[in-house]
Design a protein around this nucleic acid. Sequence first.
DNA 1: CAGCAAAGAGAGTGACTACTCACTTCATCA
DNA 2: TGATGAAGTGAGTAGTCACTCTCTTTGCTG
Lengths: 177, 177
Amino acid sequence: MTADERRASVLAVAVQEFARGGLAGTSTEVIAKRAGISQPYLFRLYPTKKDLFLTAVRDTFARTVRRFEQAAGELSGQPALTAIGLSYQELLRDRTYLLMQLQAYASCTDPDIRTATRTGFRDLWRAVERLSGVPSEALRGFFAHGMLMNVAAAMDLPSLSEEWARLVCLAAPSAED
Amino acid sequence: MTADERRASVLAVAVQEFARGGLAGTSTEVIAKRAGISQPYLFRLYPTKKDLFLTAVRDTFARTVRRFEQAAGELSGQPALTAIGLSYQELLRDRTYLLMQLQAYASCTDPDIRTATRTGFRDLWRAVERLSGVPSEALRGFFAHGMLMNVAAAMDLPSLSEEWARLVCLAAPSAED
DNA sequence: CAGCAAAGAGAGTGACTACTCACTTCATCA
DNA sequence: TGATGAAGTGAGTAGTCACTCTCTTTGCTG
């Protein structure tokens, strides 16, 4: 297996593990073990643990942009936004994505991570703006509800049957914005 | 100083440190040092580091509830919601609060932390519901924009002058919901 | 076949960290 | 006065973890 292929499979594992434990709460050893390589070799593929984390952050946002582009297809305007919203709901089924996103936000005290996270978020924002073309208030409403769904999914509210939890998790009314 | 007083001052430091580093990224030694006690004594005040973290999570949400109650005062309905929203914007000036909140969400993989975070969020939700009495869609819109402001503050977007960052940070239009 | 570069691992190392044990100081009160 | 109990600490301990040094294997090429 070439180094680049290894790097890709290590990254796939790293995203999952970092999503669960964050930068400080994840050891390079478990990433290496799950990726099927030795821990020293991990450090030849990625110079530092933080580098691997930064790559995971960038990858997470980049994947979402590509997903949104596919979801929008030839649509534009509110229909495009609705299609993107639906694809986001699908994305949240696997909690890895949103947890990784939250880890990125929560680690923004570190300047390097903050820069990477800002860039990822900005590109995502611009992608939705470009794909849908809706005005900025609608865009903000879209992202706001996305963030609420993130934390709701993080707390696993969809699995609760209590009244308040169901209210939090209802999809945003598409007519409002 | 009594043990209870010590516990309170340790908690104050712990909230700040956990907000920056999260559970795994914060050492009990720096908390003890900043609180002016020895590290062994910290473990007499709080049995484990995780216990201290859980207390910090609960405290963060509880403080917000009290703050919202004060902000709402005798108001109700949309005016109450607006007052609460303003007090939340004030609260976000100090990044400690929102970072601690994000750390709580990001640590929800742990069952104990998830339970504490759910409870805190639920009580906050119910408080705003009770204080304002607005319908659930408006409530959801309020929390959604709150979450967006959280992550925007985490990334320190308000300090950026770029167009997209300013758009993200605009306050939610109060008429929409 | 010789040589070379890349893939990969074994065995550390020094620093850190959650938590413990045994100890001291000191105010209170029978 | 002497005992009690609460506040508080010095000095560990066992374990973890990011990262390194050095070595082996393997596939390719001249």
